[in-house]
């Protein structure tokens, strides 16, 4: 497949998925048991609403239109950058998302850095010393890292580093010192997954013939490792790291609650409890878009890095 066709193919599947995802983001709200308008008003005003109030709310929010019409209205709005308004304040959902996103992006990037700083060296050392004590140790550490719930790890770090040692603040966001603990919490879980990946990828590469050839011609081991093996081994690693970027939102949900960081995760949790559906729909759609775009980018980087795809391998 040449680049043009491949791009076209990937873009068309991505668009199909986005269409489905938008319908799903929108439709989820209709799972509400009972009448959404009544439930929302009930929660907002704290008293049972009068039938007139419910009717007025429905009319104002366009909930009386047939669902397909509501969906079309919503999509048309999105194409103008309008995701609707919060039920609780007159703020637009777009503004809310833009306000909360930087906190989450900051956390995501910082934890990726933490993860890579731990995982790449650990994976390399593990692979080079395969079967040694150091390898077993690092694999065990990785296994524990995957198994630890990040909300517990977060509190553990708070207890040790904030309450006893007083090194970092317990919660909040904005300064670098407030970023350290959340980033370590989120990053160490990812590091565990990436370490295993780097190790396996390195081992696969170390067994291939070009390594023997490189060694046979007397290339220094360090050069073999870093110039040849690491470079090839990083291809699958990039994919997973890319996918992890979407998954960061999963972790951010919980980590932001633990550290009281006002990011998208926290906003989603608050909006869910408040039944602030326009905000929920907006965040869900945004995560799906981020996910689809990262997937697309990962596939395209694969295309660049791995010539086999260029020669017409199927993409499943």
């Amino acid at each position: 497949m040449n680049l043009g066709n491949y791009l076209l193919y990937r873009l068309s599947t991505a668009l199909t998925v986005l269409f489905g995802a938008s319908a799903l983001s929108f439709g989820l709200v209709f799972l509400t048991p009972g009448d959404p308008a009544e439930t929302i008003l009930d929660q907002r005003e704290d008293t049972h609403p009068t039938p007139e109030a419910v009717e007025a709310f429905r009319e104002a929010e366009g909930l009386n239109d047939p669902i397909p019409i509501q969906y079309v209205d919503w999509v048309v709005g999105i194409s103008n950058g309008d995701l609707g308004e919060s039920y609780y304040s007159s703020q637009s959902v777009t503004t809310l998302l833009v306000e909360h996103a930087p906190t989450t992006i900051e956390l995501a990037l910082a934890s990726m850095v933490v993860a890579l700083c731990i995982a790449v060296p650990a994976g390399i050392v593990s692979a080079v010393h395969r079967g040694d004590r150091i390898d077993i140790g690092s694999q065990l550490a990785a296994l524990i890292g995957v198994s630890m719930p990040n909300f517990w790890l977060g509190y553990l770090l708070i207890i040790v580093f904030s309450l006893y040692l007083g090194l970092f603040p317990v919660s909040g966001s904005g300064s670098l010192s407030q970023l350290v603990l959340p980033a370590v919490t989120l990053g160490s879980g990812m590091a565990a997954i990436i370490t295993r990946l780097v190790r396996t990828a390195m081992l696969d590469e170390l067994e291939s013939e070009y390594v023997t050839a490189a060694r046979a011609k007397g290339l220094r081991e360090r050069l073999v490792l870093y110039k040849h093996v690491l470079r090839n081994a990083l291809i699958p690693v990039i994919t997973i790291v890319g996918l992890q970027f979407g998954f960061v939102l999963n972790g951010a949900l919980v980590v932001e609650v633990v550290f009281q960081r006002p990011g998208l995760g926290m906003l989603l949790v608050d909006s869910i409890f408040a039944r602030n559906y326009p905000v929920v729909q907006g965040i869900v759609l945004l995560t799906a878009v981020i996910f689809v775009v990262t997937n697309l980018l990962v596939d395209l980087s694969y295309y660049r890095l791995d010539p086999r795809i260029r020669l017409g391998g199927t993409n499943s």
Binding site: T13, T16, V17, L18, G20, A21, L24, L28, V29, L31, T32, P33, G246, F247, L249, N250, L253, V254, L268, V269, I272, F273, R275, V280, I283, V284, T287, A288, F291, V292, N295
Partner: peptide, 24 residues
């Protein structure tokens, strides 16, 4: 498979949170 793609277009916990939250 498109259905699978759509499902996988969401981070699982986010989707689960929303579904569970809306159901109560």
């Amino acid at each position: 498979m498109r259905l699978v793609d759509i499902q996988l277009a969401f981070p699982g916990l986010v989707l689960a949170l929303v579904v569970a939250g809306i159901l109560g």
